Simulated scan of single mutants.
Amino acid sequence: MTIDWFAKLRHLLQTLAFCLAVATVQYAFAPERPYAPILVYSLFIGTVIWAVVDLGRAVMPSARETGWPPGWRGFALVAAGIVAGRFIGVALADLICRNVGLYGLEDHVHGAAEVRADLLITLVAGIIGSYWFYARNKSAYLLRRMREAERHANDARLKLLETQLEPHMMFNTLANLRALIAVDPPRAQAMLDHMIAYLRATLDASRATTHPLRTEFERLHDYLELMAIRMGPRLSYALDLPEDLAELSVPALLLQPLVENSIKHGLEPKVEGGRIEVRARREGGHVVIEVRDSGVGANGHGSGGKGFGLVQIRERLASLHGAGASLDFSTDAGGAHARIALPVAA
């Protein structure tokens, strides 16, 4: 069994801080009693309760969602800690106070009222402290489960995004391939080769949530080659990936929605077509990836940057990098411009 001693030390320090607060409150209600003995008693009682409860639950079978023994065992452990704190902690604190002289010149005698008050304080503080740690453990577990659920939801949205993107391209490509087989077999062969490479890359991407940026650019190359065969001279493109960024890990299918948006909403509606440029560069602690097109601009991108694919990219970037990553999208008379910024290690 492995014990996280760093976590145990953190719990001990939190317990000592709680004991200090209890002693301060107790002194505020009974200022006629000296503060030093109250503090010593509070610290020793709390430390003994912590030792019994926190170390005890580390060696007992515990529930995964709380880190505490389930059922009556958890209550029994807390009760044992409170009893041990009351008798062992009080005995040790009394010994320290008498030997150090914290009681003063006269020998201190614990009256019945003082014993009852101290017992009540020990009981209430022990229960509150134990419940606080129990609630924190359960909250941390629920937070982990929520993050796992968000990650699974992001994966599911990625699969949904793929199912929405792929058929549109596949049906158009197959229709063009059927027409080319009869009139231009070499172009049909080239189109088929790119289609096979693209589908292979798509299959690999579906098995992982991230992959190297190089793989993302290779996938775009095959996709744009397919589109270039379909659109002919109406489509030209440029892909610029510096070698030092090729192995940067990025979410799979990160750039595909942006490029498909550029073709579907920017270049296809334009009679003369246009050009798409995808470039990556380093800017300080970020890698910036830009997708530009010379399409119809705002007249074609009616969603204003709030379409399904763009929303999914923003959500996936937020889940992976939080506020450290961003997607900016804008259009003007000269076309559309998407800018992704990803944080990278220095």
Score class of each variant (00 low, 15 high):
residue 5 W to A: 05
residue 9 L to M: 12
residue 14 Q to G: 14
residue 15 T to H: 07
residue 16 L to H: 06
residue 21 A to L: 15
residue 24 T to K: 08
residue 39 L to E: 03
residue 40 V to W: 07
residue 45 I to C: 07
residue 47 T to H: 03
residue 54 D to R: 10
residue 57 R to I: 02
residue 59 V to A: 07
residue 59 V to Y: 08
residue 85 G to S: 06
residue 90 V to R: 09
residue 96 I to E: 03
residue 99 N to F: 12
residue 104 G to Q: 12
residue 105 L to D: 15
residue 113 A to Q: 09
residue 118 D to W: 10
residue 124 V to A: 14
residue 128 I to A: 15
residue 134 Y to P: 14
residue 137 N to Y: 02
residue 137 N to R: 07
residue 143 L to A: 14
residue 151 R to Y: 04
residue 158 L to Y: 02
residue 172 N to Q: 11
residue 173 T to P: 04
residue 174 L to F: 05
residue 176 N to P: 00
residue 198 Y to N: 13
residue 200 R to N: 15
residue 204 D to L: 11
residue 207 R to A: 13
residue 217 F to S: 07
residue 223 Y to E: 00
residue 230 R to M: 11
residue 231 M to S: 04
residue 234 R to W: 02
residue 245 L to E: 08
residue 245 L to A: 10
residue 246 A to C: 07
residue 246 A to E: 02
residue 249 S to R: 07
residue 249 S to C: 01
residue 249 S to A: 13
residue 251 P to V: 03
residue 251 P to E: 03
residue 254 L to G: 10
residue 264 K to Y: 09
residue 264 K to D: 15
residue 264 K to I: 10
residue 266 G to Q: 09
residue 270 K to P: 00
residue 275 R to F: 02
residue 278 V to E: 02
residue 278 V to A: 02
residue 286 H to D: 11
residue 286 H to K: 14
residue 286 H to M: 12
residue 292 R to G: 01
residue 293 D to F: 02
residue 297 G to S: 03
residue 302 G to S: 09
residue 307 G to D: 13
residue 312 Q to S: 11
residue 323 A to F: 00
residue 324 G to A: 13
residue 326 S to E: 06
residue 330 S to I: 04
residue 330 S to D: 14
residue 331 T to G: 05
residue 332 D to F: 02
residue 335 G to C: 06
residue 336 A to P: 01
residue 345 A to V: 05
